[in-house]
Lab assay of single mutants.
Amino acid sequence: TEYKLVVVGAGGVGKSALTIQLIQNHFVDEYDPTIEDSYRKQVVIDGETCLLDILDTAGQEEYSAMRDQYMRTGEGFLCVFAINNTKSFEDIHQYREQIKRVKDSDDVPMVLVGNKCDLAARTVESRQAQDLARSYGIPYIETSAKTRQGVEDAFYTLVREIRQH
């Protein structure tokens, strides 16, 4: 089974770092803004072998026109913010609204991801993020692309959301 996953969120929150940590098991430290990259990885989730087709997208506003296209083809979405960047957390709402509009559905598989949880300088409390996820009816997972904490959990949870859909 193949799953088309799309990673969305503001610029600099760590979308590529999360994806590369999942696929290649290493942490990319330097920031190089993405336009669009796709990665494929075969994994076993709950005993089922599946192929993850992951689209890593641009957070930069100037590429926002490309969003409709990949939102149409994606089956599930990782909505990523950084726990030390309140603005990126506030941006999640717009991504969710755009996904709902493009998919013409209120019920699209999504996982809210709070990345950079290895950093002490948190400005978005776990509780705020949990409340937001609960209001959307989606899971919330904290990750660190640096330490790998929660990385597999985030992507695998999204696959489970798609399966249950």
Rank of each mutant, 00 (worst) to 15 (best):
I20H: 13
K41M: 09
D56K: 01
D107H: 14
D37G: 03
D46V: 06
E125P: 12
G137T: 06
K4P: 09
K87A: 10
V13I: 09
T147R: 08
I20W: 09
Y136T: 05
D32A: 08
G114I: 02
D118G: 04
E90P: 03
V151W: 04
K15W: 06
E161P: 01
H26Y: 14
N85D: 15
R96Y: 14
A82M: 13
S16M: 05
L22H: 15
E75S: 11
S38T: 14
T147V: 05
S64Q: 07
V113L: 11
D104V: 12
R40V: 13
G74K: 02
T49C: 10
N84C: 15
T123R: 05
A129I: 04
E142A: 06
D68R: 03
S105A: 08
S88G: 08
S88W: 05
K116Y: 13
L132W: 14
Y31Q: 04
G74I: 06
Q60H: 13
Q128K: 08
L22A: 12
K103T: 06
T86S: 11
S144F: 04
S135N: 09
V13H: 09
L158F: 01
H93G: 11
K100N: 05
M71N: 10
V8T: 04
L132M: 15
Y70I: 14
A145T: 05
T19I: 08
E2R: 06
R122L: 07
L51W: 12
Q42P: 11
L119C: 15
T34A: 03
D104N: 12
G74R: 05
E48F: 13
K116G: 15
D53W: 06
G150Y: 10
D37V: 02
E125A: 08
G9P: 02
T157C: 10
E61L: 12
V8Q: 02
E75L: 08
S16W: 01
H165W: 08
D131V: 01
Q98M: 15
Y156S: 15
N85P: 02
K4A: 11
Q128A: 10
I23F: 13
E2Q: 04
I54Y: 06
D91T: 11
E152H: 11
R122I: 09
R101P: 03
R101S: 03
K41I: 11
A120R: 11
G14D: 00
E48L: 10
Y70F: 13
L158N: 00
H93S: 14
L112W: 05
D29R: 08
Q98A: 13
E61R: 09
Y31V: 02
A145M: 07
G47H: 10
T1M: 08
A58L: 01
D56H: 00
A82L: 00
M110Q: 03
R40A: 07
R101V: 05
M66V: 08
T123G: 12
A129M: 14
R127W: 08
V8K: 05
T123V: 07
D56E: 01
G59E: 02
T57M: 13
V111Y: 01
L112H: 01
N115Q: 14
T57A: 01
C117K: 13
S38P: 03
R134I: 07
L132Q: 10
Q24V: 15
I99L: 13
L22S: 14
G9D: 04
Q128M: 13
Y136M: 14
L55S: 07
S144A: 08
L78K: 02
I35M: 06
V159I: 12
D153S: 07
M71Q: 09
L5N: 03
E125T: 11
D56M: 02
Q130C: 09
I45P: 08
D131H: 12
Q149M: 02
E30G: 07
R134T: 13
V7P: 02
N115T: 14
T57K: 00
T143H: 00
G9F: 01
Q69K: 03
K146G: 15
R96M: 15
T57E: 01
V28K: 08
Y31A: 05
L119Q: 14
T143W: 01
V80L: 09
V111R: 00
I20N: 01
K41G: 11
C79S: 02
V159W: 11
R122E: 12
G12Q: 11
G9Y: 00
I99R: 01
P33N: 05
D91W: 10
H26C: 10
D37A: 02
I83W: 09
D29H: 13
E48G: 07
S126H: 14
F89L: 11
F27L: 06
Y39L: 01
Q149F: 04
Y31W: 08
L112Y: 05
Y70A: 07
M110V: 04
E142V: 03
G59R: 04
Q130R: 09
P33V: 06
K146F: 15
I23G: 15
D29F: 09
T73C: 09
L132P: 01
I83Y: 08
Q21E: 11
Y156C: 12
L55E: 15
F77E: 00
D104Q: 15
E2I: 08
D46I: 09
E2F: 00
A10N: 05
T147A: 07
S105N: 13
V28S: 13
G114P: 00
D68P: 00
G14I: 00
I162M: 12
P139L: 08
A133Q: 03
S135T: 11
V7S: 03
G14Q: 01
Y140Q: 03
E152Q: 09
A133R: 05
L119H: 08
G114C: 10
T147H: 09
V159Q: 02
T57G: 02
I23E: 09
M66D: 10
G11R: 14
Q24R: 04
V13F: 00
K15H: 03
A121F: 06
V111N: 00
A17W: 08
C79R: 02
M66Y: 01
L132T: 09
D107N: 14
C79W: 06
A154Y: 03
Q164E: 13
L158I: 15
A154I: 14
E75R: 04
E97S: 13
D118L: 02
M110W: 07
D37K: 05
Q149P: 05
P109T: 08
G12S: 12
F27R: 01
L52Q: 01
L55H: 06
A133D: 05
C79P: 00
I138Q: 04
N25D: 14
S105C: 15
Y63S: 14
G14V: 00
L132A: 10
F89Q: 13
Q94G: 08
E97D: 13
S126Q: 04
D118Q: 03
I35G: 01
Q128R: 08
C117Q: 10
A58T: 12
S126L: 10
Y140A: 00
Y63T: 13
E75Y: 13
K146I: 15
V124C: 14
V113W: 07
Q21T: 12
T157Y: 12
S38W: 01
G59A: 07
T19W: 03
S135D: 05
I162H: 07
E152V: 10
A145C: 12
C79D: 00
F77N: 00
T86H: 14
G14H: 01
Q24E: 03
Q164M: 05
R40I: 13
M71A: 01
D104R: 12
A10K: 13
E2M: 03
V159Y: 03
F77H: 00
S64G: 15
Q69D: 10
D53K: 05
I45R: 08
K100F: 04
I35E: 01
Q42V: 09
G9S: 02
Q128Y: 11
N115K: 13
L78V: 09
Q94Y: 11
C50S: 10
V111F: 13
D37T: 02
Y95F: 07
R40Y: 07
V44Q: 12
V8A: 03
Q94A: 07
E48Y: 15
Y70K: 00
A120T: 07
L52I: 13
E62Y: 15
R101Y: 01
T73Y: 15
V113S: 00
Q69W: 14
D118Y: 00
G12V: 10
N115V: 11
I54S: 05
Y136P: 02
S144L: 03
T157F: 10
Y3H: 15
A82T: 10
T57V: 03
G76M: 14
E161Y: 09
Q69N: 14
D104H: 11
P139C: 05
S105M: 12
E152T: 12
V43R: 11
Y31L: 11
V28W: 09
L51S: 13
H26S: 13
H165Q: 15
G11W: 11
I20C: 02
G11I: 15
V102G: 04
P33F: 05
R148A: 02
I20S: 06
D29K: 09
C117N: 15
D91E: 10
Y70T: 03
R148C: 11
G59L: 02
L55C: 08
K41R: 12
Q149D: 09
E152S: 11
G76R: 02
V113R: 01
F77G: 00
P109A: 12
D32V: 04
D107E: 10
T19A: 13
T143I: 12
V80S: 04
A120Y: 06
